[in-house]
Structures are given as structure tokens and as C-alpha cells.
Nucleic acid binder design. Sequence first.
DNA 1: TCACGTAACTACACCCGTGTCACGGGGAAG
DNA 2: CTTCCCCGTGACACGGGTGTAGTTACGTGA
Lengths: 157, 157
Amino acid sequence: MVDRTSEGFSGAKAAEIVGITYRQLDYWARTDLVRPSLEDAKGSGSRRRYSYRDLLELKVIKSLLDAGIKLESVREVFSYLQENLGEDVTTANLVIQGNQAVLVRDGGELIDLVRQGQGVLNVLALAGVVEDVDARIVELRPAAPEVATVTPLASGH
Amino acid sequence: MVDRTSEGFSGAKAAEIVGITYRQLDYWARTDLVRPSLEDAKGSGSRRRYSYRDLLELKVIKSLLDAGIKLESVREVFSYLQENLGEDVTTANLVIQGNQAVLVRDGGELIDLVRQGQGVLNVLALAGVVEDVDARIVELRPAAPEVATVTPLASGH
DNA sequence: TCACGTAACTACACCCGTGTCACGGGGAAG
DNA sequence: CTTCCCCGTGACACGGGTGTAGTTACGTGA
């Protein structure tokens, strides 16, 4: 019964896990970038519920932002990813070229892309994304009832 | 003597060659992103003079912008590039990771980077940049002055 | 059922990068 | 030296993304 909370993740929790501000999460939801797939907001007072997969999407976006990519650009590309995210994600690299995206598994394939190289390639290893999200979820688990000694650091951000 | 104009490139010309607006060129110069190395502006009425290398820098930035990278992010990284641009540029790839940049020549090296893969890699083949700039310069050569019949098109872009 | 806390919502403000336009000063040609 | 035009400059506007604060209404626990 302790785990009832883990039928998905609240907005605040999701934001904390992927390392974004609530404002961003909210903005992205309203502007249709990433909506909580378990439960969308229906007016003031309601609560969003994010699935694990949602977290992955959010984290990918966060990673792209950290790399200095414009949100607008992320938007253009992201419909593709939403379709293809989820399978063997941990072995693939997301490669963005202009306003297109591809999942690349083979390293040589990547080199080919670079060689033909018009413009810039943005490469993101999805394995890292999954790892980070998983680690963060564990890290933020409410203190285990058995011990409950760990003083949570002031997670001030 | 015909070629006196080619002691560098005027602001307008530079912008046209690399495919940016004059406004952008101007803004970048004022905010210290890329200054014309031959002749900087000294007040109203003066004229900026860009070197060929300046054009390459401008074009790299343009490429990064086209890839959806924030100008702010370009700024953080660009000091590095300004030091290392110019040598064997045509064979190298510019790789940006976070706020660091590296020149990568070997493909395998690139794959290693991807594998260790924290965050996003932005990869830009510099050969393409050089090609584009060169081609564009030729393309925009003013009609031979001996004739001077060519009505300059309203170069409206 | 009721009250309280929390999260969604609204409104406002700010900064950055860019577009636009008017102005004016120098450079270059005659 | 004079004139014309190019281009640097200043001022203003605007949209996107985010921060902040106050308001509202839903969920949940008693």
C-alpha cells in the first residue's frame, strides 16, 4: 500500500526526477510537448500523472536543452521520437539532423552520416537517459520505512 | 586592381555569403561573437571588413543555429574554435559536448565519444562549411567591372 | 461530509535574439 | 572639395521561454 503513489508520477515528482522546473513541465504540458499520459490536467485542482515513458521523453528534452538546443527545435523533431521511443531504447542513439530524427544503433552508420555531413548532427545516447532516470527514481524513493534515517539533503533546485 | 574589393568582405557581403541577415551580423559584432578582423567599426559611417576566416566562423555559427542550437550556447563554446580554426580545417569535425568543443578527425574517436555518451554531441563537418563558403563567394562575384551593364538585382534577402 | 493542502491556472514581468525604420557620418568617386 | 550613397547606429517592437506570485478548485484524509 505504500506504493500506491507509484502508479505514475505527480507533476512535481516528475520534474524533480528529470531535473527540470515545475514551470517547464507545466509549460510543456500546456503547449503539447509532453503531456502526462496517465492523467492529464482537467482544470484547477486536478492532478497530472506521468508514466515512466513520459519521464524518458522529458529527460531526452532536458538533455537536448542542456546541449543548447532550442525548445522550438525540439518540438519540430519530437513527434518522431514519441512514436519510436520505448522499444530497445537503451542501445540506440538519437540522431537529429535539421528537423529530422533517426534512431541509429550501428556506430558505422553514424560515421556515414557524419561523412556525408551536411549541417550539424545532434547525437544523444539513449542508454544514458534511461540510466539517469532510473537512478534518480531510486534516489528519490521516500526513505525506506525500515530505516528512515537518511536525512534527505535539501534538494534545493 | 579589379580585385581591390576583395581585401576582405564588407558587412553586407559577408552576411550574404554566409546566409545570415545583416541584423545578425551586426548583433554578433556588437556583442563580441564575431568581429571583423580586418577592420572593426568605429562609429557611424565607418565600415567593417571581414576576413575569409571570419566568414568561416560566421558560417559555422550559422550552421549551428540552423541545427537549432541557441546562440547563447554557441557563445560559450566559441572561444575554443576561434583558436583552433584555420589549420587542417577541411578534414576535421567540430564536436560540441556541453560547453566544451573538440576537433575530431578520426571516426573511431567519434564513436568512442558517443559510447561514453553523457549528454548530447553536436557534430559538424567543417569540410562542408568551407565548401559552402567558397562556392558562395564565387557565386556572388560581381560581374566584371569592364562592362558594368549588369543591373544589380534587388538582392533582397 | 468537511476542511485543508496541493497543484493547476492566471496574470504579470523580464531577457534574449531578431525585425524594422529613421538617422547620420564617412568613404569614395568625380 | 563636393556630392552621393553605403552602412553603422539608435530606438522601438515583438515573440518565445521562463520566473514569480496570487487565485482557484480538486483530492484526500479524518
